[in-house]
């Protein structure tokens, strides 16, 4: 077995080296070229991802040191390719307008009036292990705010589960409770034709089965699975992840909703999306930046909505992404 492995390792070494020399020289050529043809870049991308796949397939027999070296090499190719891509098509820069942070509303926190955990009226989904989870679930055609949430009994930040929501506007930004009710992480499942307006949180957001929805959120990590037709307004310091998703559009979190920490907002990497269903250097067909003109203008955000005669349905009709 040792012998077969050795010959496999040698064979891999030879073929990897050949590809490496080839790719490196092509990268150099295009690096010095004045105009970078996207066609050549695409071809390179295909070859680099082929190399990555070969490496992945070889992990079963390669010694770990070798694996690491190969991995580094492939990474460096991907990196230079990415840089070439950026220089070939400079991204349009956008600038943030610093607005004086509006004080987080002067209304007294309405959810403070509920004494103790108010979980009794929450129907729990069969699949959910209920216990003392904070959850917002099973709502249709409603306007939901922080006061619809059960109050967290603890002073620490807590995790929130949002599930089985249809035709709703969920606004957890206006009227935000101070401290005791802060949300640190969110789990979202099965949300259709809705607007979810969530605050910035220190933890992560993970979403499944979201359809035809507008979502605004600030979080540390963002993962979205099996979703389609979602406009995501995002502030994030790491790479957002999508997996098994289609028709997702990303843009920045509305500046006037950002409560604090505007520096974090400014360095947001909401367009560094990684599509795990499309692990290669070519651009993913499953997401794109939300064009400025299609984005919801700051003042039409639901925060100011429903004060007049607007009903949930007509607001949704106006805001939801086209299918």
């Amino acid at each position: 077995m040792a012998d077969t492995n050795r010959s496999l390792i040698e064979e891999f070494y030879a073929s990897f080296n050949a590809s490496r020399t080839d790719i490196a020289s092509r990268l150099e050529v295009i690096g010095t070229a004045v105009s970078k043809s996207t066609e050549i870049l695409d071809q390179l991308a295909v070859d680099v991802s082929k190399l990555r796949k070969e490496l992945a397939d070889a992990t079963s027999f390669l010694p770990s040191y070798d694996q690491r070296q190969y991995e580094l090499q492939v990474k460096s190719f991907e990196h230079s390719l990415e840089q070439l891509r950026v220089s070939a098509a400079p991204k349009p820069k956008f600038a943030f307008k610093r607005k004086a942070a509006t004080p987080a509303t002067n209304q007294t926190v309405s959810d403070a009036k509920k004494p103790g955990p108010a979980t009794a009226d929450l129907p729990s989904t069969a699949s959910t292990i209920a216990s003392n989870a904070r959850a917002l679930s099973n709502h249709t055609g409603q306007y939901l705010t922080s006061s619809s949430l059960p109050v967290s009994s603890s002073t620490a930040g807590s995790e929130l589960t949002i599930s089985d929501i249809d035709h709703c506007i969920v606004d957890l930004v206006s009227n935000q409770g101070e401290g005791s009710n802060a949300i640190t992480a969110v789990h979202v499942k099965n949300v259709k034709r809705s607007v979810l307006l969530l605050p910035s949180m220190s933890g992560s957001a993970i979403l499944h089965d979201v359809e035809n929805t507008v979502l605004a959120i600030g979080c540390h990590q963002f993962r979205m699975h099996t979703s389609s037709h979602v406009d995501v307004y995002l502030s994030i310091p790491s790479n957002p992840i999508i997996e098994h998703c289609t028709h997702i559009r990303f843009t920045r979190y509305p500046t006037h909703l950002a409560t604090s920490d505007s520096t974090a907002e400014a360095s947001s990497t909401h367009l560094s999306v990684q599509d795990f269903s499309h692990i290669r250097a070519t651009p993913s067909p499953n997401w794109k930046p939300l064009p400025e003109e299609a984005a919801i203008a700051e003042k039409t955000w639901p925060r100011a909505l429903l004060r007049g005669d607007d009903d949930v349905e007509s607001v949704l009709k106006r805001l939801l992404p086209p299918i």
Binding site: A56, T128, I129, K189, E243, F276, S277
Partner: peptide
């Protein structure tokens, strides 16, 4: 990530311990 899980088996060889990490807040995916 789900897409990566089929590759887990590439790393099984000679493993002395598995550290299985769970998000204790993720009731939906237990």
């Amino acid at each position: 990530q789900q897409t990566l899980r089929p590759y887990w088996r590439n790393y099984f060889e000679q493993t002395d311990a598995i550290i299985w990490v769970v998000d204790a807040g993720d009731r939906l995916r237990m």
